[in-house]
Simulated scan of single mutants.
Amino acid sequence: MWNNVRQLNFAANALYALLALVLLAAGGYWLIQRPNFALREIQIDGDTDHINSPTVRASVVGHLKGNFFTVDLDSARQQFEQMPWVRRASVRRVWPNALAVTLEEYKPLGTWGADQLVSVDGELFTANQGELDEELPAFDGPDGTAKEVVARYQDFKKWYAPLGAAPEEVTLSPRYAWTVKLSNGTEIEYGRERNPQTLADRSRRLIEAWAAVTQRWGKEIEYADLRYPNGFAIRAAGMRFISDTDKAKKQ
């Protein structure tokens, strides 16, 4: 090899190239460690109705590691998504020392159980309920049923709109029996769904008879039991009335 000029030139060029790479890497490492690239700003955009930007910055900045070049964007995104009210976050770098964060908030539809909220998409989340702008309907149900309860809430809302009432509470029991409380004070016992039309049929039966019921018993109907095949029972002003359309056993 030592007598081969071509091989010597090749080896020398390779060493020069390696040295250049080492110097370039060292220079690059030195450059990216300069204080100029330390993260100094977090720009927050998107949904911030329930999010205080200074609080978000104060809570997250201490968990971010690295600078403009070395910060892990996926880890940063996860930190933002752990904040109350934050459903989704996207994070990108802004030259030379900033991060831009776009936040998407949960849209609260109602409360869930004792200490959670449920979104319009049927997703459960935890946040300070004192930050709510208005009183929300109350929902509850077994684990994994939030989407189903939200979907049924929309049905009840549509069905009872002709009566000028809206559901304030929707509960699915551990036995999967439905109970609804309306804004007019009426609590309605539906029981379990026997088929996809069970709740719709029972609601229609009550709504169609509502005018006659209130004319006879007054508008303060405290309770309606719809767990009868063709009729229903009501309680109003201390009275109990069972519809004459069906004396059969409740289902």
Rank of each mutant, 00 (worst) to 15 (best):
V180R: 00
V180Y: 01
V180T: 01
V180F: 01
V180M: 01
V180P: 01
K181S: 00
K181C: 00
K181I: 00
K181E: 00
L182N: 02
L182D: 01
L182E: 02
L182T: 00
L182F: 02
L182H: 04
S183D: 04
S183W: 08
S183P: 05
N184L: 11
N184K: 07
N184I: 06
N184R: 11
N184C: 09
N184T: 15
G185F: 12
G185A: 14
G185R: 11
G185T: 14
T186Y: 05
T186P: 02
T186F: 06
T186W: 11
T186Q: 10
E187K: 11
I188Q: 00
I188Y: 00
I188S: 00
I188C: 02
I188N: 00
E189I: 14
Y190I: 10
Y190R: 04
Y190S: 04
Y190F: 15
Y190T: 05
Y190N: 02
Y190H: 09
G191P: 06
G191E: 01
G191K: 04
G191H: 05
G191M: 09
G191R: 03
G191V: 07
R192D: 04
R192S: 13
R192M: 13
R192N: 06
R192H: 03
R192G: 10
E193Q: 12
E193Y: 02
E193A: 15
E193C: 15
E193W: 09
R194H: 09
R194Y: 06
R194E: 14
R194P: 07
N195T: 13
N195A: 11
N195H: 12
N195I: 13
P196S: 09
P196L: 09
P196N: 14
P196W: 12
Q197C: 05
Q197A: 15
Q197T: 11
Q197G: 13
Q197L: 09
Q197E: 12
Q197W: 13
T198C: 06
L199D: 09
A200P: 04
A200R: 15
D201H: 06
D201L: 03
D201A: 10
D201G: 01
D201W: 08
D201P: 02
R202Q: 11
R202K: 08
R202M: 04
R202E: 08
S203P: 02
S203D: 03
S203C: 03
S203W: 08
S203I: 05
S203E: 02
S203K: 03
R204V: 03
R204K: 08
R204W: 03
R205G: 03
R205C: 07
R205Y: 07
R205I: 05
R205L: 13
R205P: 03
L206R: 06
L206T: 01
L206K: 05
L206I: 09
L206C: 06
I207L: 05
I207H: 05
I207G: 06
I207A: 08
I207F: 11
I207K: 13
I207Q: 07
I207T: 08
E208Y: 15
E208A: 14
E208G: 07
E208N: 11
E208K: 14
A209R: 15
A209Y: 07
W210H: 15
W210T: 03
W210E: 02
A211E: 12
A211V: 07
A211C: 02
A212W: 09
A212P: 05
A212D: 14
